[in-house]
């Protein structure tokens, strides 16, 4: 179909983020009196969409050969997330961790990751989850594609590789779009794309022996003005909790009576 030679293998880079596990209630709740976040030992997990990204990378590698490298930027404990990715079957893991990266916004983060990815070397595909569930910005993916000057396909729910071509289905609000591009390319994936595997026991045990490379800012060739707070155009100036919704009403009593009152309330508020 195309004249270009088939790439022998697929070297894939996956960017992941460690996020607090919001599933684990009541680990994170807002204290209404002090207006602060209560983080009761919120366990760190791999951002759920990033697990889909890892899974997709592993499937492509298993079908086409090549290597999967997982990279993350974050505090030292983000190594746990990378280790899980290794246990799932990734070949290599890199953590970019440095105190000078504190305060990075999405622009600085995408720049730093881009420099990390350049250090890893060449790749055919760069996969991310569509967004992180803590920040929900979905900005790091396109930002990375821009720094690396490669095409981007966001919100992919299906991807297919053929030679140096990629085809994908993008999930839009009320439709999906079939698109095609050439490799290397950046893809962000949705939850629909696959069901992430659990690490197998063999994976877990062998991941323990693998090394997670830790790179500091000095290990990368980068412009100091573009990282951390210095490299971040956006500044968070205030963090607050949304106004508590007006205290709800508890409907109590015998069931038929409660049902009647609920119907009455909904009628008053013009639901019917």
């Amino acid at each position: 179909m195309n004249s270009q030679p088939e790439r022998p293998t697929m070297d894939i880079v996956v960017c992941i983020k460690q996020v607090p596990d919001t599933e684990e209630l009541p680990h994170i709740r807002v204290n209404r009196e002090t207006n602060t976040l209560v983080r009761e030992s919120a366990k760190g997990i791999i951002n759920p969409f990033d697990e889909n990204a890892i899974e997709e990378a592993l499937r492509l590698r298993d079908a086409k050969g090549g290597r999967v490298t997982v990279i993350s930027m974050g505090p030292p404990q983000a190594e746990e997330a990378l280790r899980k990715a290794l246990a799932m079957g990734a070949d290599q893991a890199v953590l970019i961790s440095d105190s000078s990266l504190a305060g990075s916004d999405t622009l600085a983060t995408s720049y730093t990751l881009a420099m990390g990815i350049k250090k890893i070397g060449s790749f055919s595909l760069l996969i991310l989850g569509k967004q992180a569930i803590d920040g929900d910005t979905a900005q790091v993916g396109p930002g990375l594609a821009e720094w690396l000057r490669i095409p981007q396909i966001t919100y992919a729910r299906k991807i297919e590789i053929n030679g140096n071509k990629i085809r994908a289905e993008r999930a839009l609000e009320d439709a999906f779009e079939k698109v095609e591009s050439t490799l290397p390319c950046l893809v962000t994936v949705t939850k629909e794309i696959n069901i992430p595997r659990y690490p197998s026991l063999k994976g877990l045990l062998s991941a323990k022996k693998k090394e997670v490379l830790v790179w500091s800012a000095d290990d990368l060739t980068l412009d100091r003005k573009r990282i951390g707070l210095e490299g971040s155009p956006t500044w968070v100036i205030k963090i607050f909790t949304p106004e508590a919704p007006p205290k709800g009403e508890v409907l109590a009593g015998e069931m038929p009576e409660v049902a009647d009152r609920l119907i009455e309330k909904l009628r008053e508020r013009e639901v019917f």
Partner: peptide, 9 residues
């Protein structure tokens, strides 16, 4: 964080 906090930027 899922709407639990608001940030002004």
């Amino acid at each position: 964080l899922g709407g639990n906090i608001l940030a002004t930027i």
